[in-house]
């Protein structure tokens, strides 16, 4: 279990602060596990033949998984008391398929009133950046 005492406060953060990357291997088994867990059972997310018919080289990770991994990346950095407010402009620039190792990262791009932190978020693999997005968090304050 993660360290319960770990917490990032608004005052700890500045523009340019980088969030430690979180990586995860994509296998067909994980895609099947993920589809069952997130309830998006669309064939292209676990059936290679169906995925290829959509133009993908293989089954590919769905949006629910990508959003969840973004939340994981930000949560592991900020700690238990921060709040995920928004994920915006989420785009998948290519298919994320079995055999890919995805590394999720984020960097602070703005600090706003009410302890809001805006971040640029991405996922990358050997294919380059495969996901881009922005996120907005509210962090606790020390004052």
């Amino acid at each position: 279990m993660k360290d319960l005492l770990h917490q990032v406060y608004f005052e700890d953060v500045e523009v340019g602060t980088e969030v430690p990357p979180v990586s995860i291997t994509l296998t067909l088994q994980r895609l099947v596990m993920e589809a069952g867990a997130n309830r998006d059972l669309s064939l292209m997310h676990h059936d290679r033949e169906a995925a290829i018919a959509t133009g993908s080289p293989d089954a590919f990770a769905n949006t629910f998984f990508i959003m969840g991994m973004i939340e994981r990346t930000l949560r592991e950095w900020m700690g238990s008391k921060g709040t995920l407010r928004k994920i915006t402009s989420l785009r998948m620039t290519t298919f994320n398929c079995p055999g890919d190792v995805l590394s999720f990262g984020a960097k602070v791009i703005a600090l706003e009133p009410d302890n809001i932190v805006r971040l640029e978020v991405w996922a990358e693999s050997k294919k380059g950046k495969t996901v881009t997005a922005e996120a907005s968090l509210r962090l606790p304050s020390t004052v």
Binding site: M33, A37, F65
Partner: peptide, 15 residues
Amino acid sequence: RWLEAKEFDCPIHTD
């Protein structure tokens, strides 16, 4: 099960 698929370990979701 949702956390498992992402190897996501955060106590506010389990404890």
